[in-house]
Design a protein around this nucleic acid. Sequence first.
DNA 1: GATATATTTGCAAATTTGTCGCAATTATAT
DNA 2: ATATAATTGCGACAAATTTGCAAATATATC
Lengths: 140, 140
Amino acid sequence: MHHDSLHALLVKEKLSLTRPRRIIFDLLLHKDPQSMQVLISRAANKVDRATIYRTIELFERLGIVHRLNIGWKYKIELSDLFVGHHHHFHCNQCGATHTLQANPMLETMIDTVAAKENFSPRSHQLEIHGLCGQCAGQPA
Amino acid sequence: MHHDSLHALLVKEKLSLTRPRRIIFDLLLHKDPQSMQVLISRAANKVDRATIYRTIELFERLGIVHRLNIGWKYKIELSDLFVGHHHHFHCNQCGATHTLQANPMLETMIDTVAAKENFSPRSHQLEIHGLCGQCAGQPA
DNA sequence: GATATATTTGCAAATTTGTCGCAATTATAT
DNA sequence: ATATAATTGCGACAAATTTGCAAATATATC
Ligand SMILES: [Mn+2]
Ligand SMILES: [Mn+2]
Ligand SMILES: [Zn+2]
Ligand SMILES: [Zn+2]
């Protein structure tokens, strides 16, 4: 159960799995990356705005979520700990965001490139922009 | 001259290279990624806040700049059209941002991965997080 | 270079987004 | 069940971003 891992991560820091934290986590589970505004409106009457900001900040610090550069404002999604590692493809035409499964060869190369410069990589984010299959077919 | 390419990109869209646009472009040239706030304060008394937002939005639409996820807030930098294509490494410890020269092998693989899923990649962004050489040496 | 036309800017106000203090509530430990 | 520490909701704030519109500036034409 995902809630168990979440609970474990929190307990390790002497923090507790509260109702608001569970609600926010559930909003993120199995969903595409969401903007703060969407999260806030989806949690309306359940969790306060301030708590959502505080929780996302906490979750990010613990590596439970991370934020993405899609469009003008950022979006939040669960980290690799909860959904398999993946990258994103964003269509410039229709605005759709697709998931790209992680490719072992590519992952290795990314770490290698960083190591070559004497860095110790811990995580990374790759966003590809262009045209999706649909949009590439039709004229603009 | 970089201003010529900038001018060409604007003219193609029936837009003009105005004083504020040139000033903002120059602020970005040869500089590390900058936050909106820094851009606003650096352009103080020269370009209005609203104009900076409008210009960055325009530049982004035309592919002249793109935004980066570095830490909590995003930053703006010139796109590959004006500075060589590169990636970023961000140190979780000291907060420094380093440039990673583009690696031909890696670049090819990124495009291949996207193409395999029937996407037509036009650009991409890779951000690596971890510890820099300095910080990896010393204990936390 | 002067004039006409369309675009762009600055300004100030409005809206949206993100933060903070603190009393009341909720979670863990005993 | 009680004690203790962590967490939340609720304003009130503060910061960031957007907008309408009259004035200023750029391009096209004469
Ligand atoms: Mn990866
Ligand atoms: Mn690249
Ligand atoms: Zn598309
Ligand atoms: Zn460092």
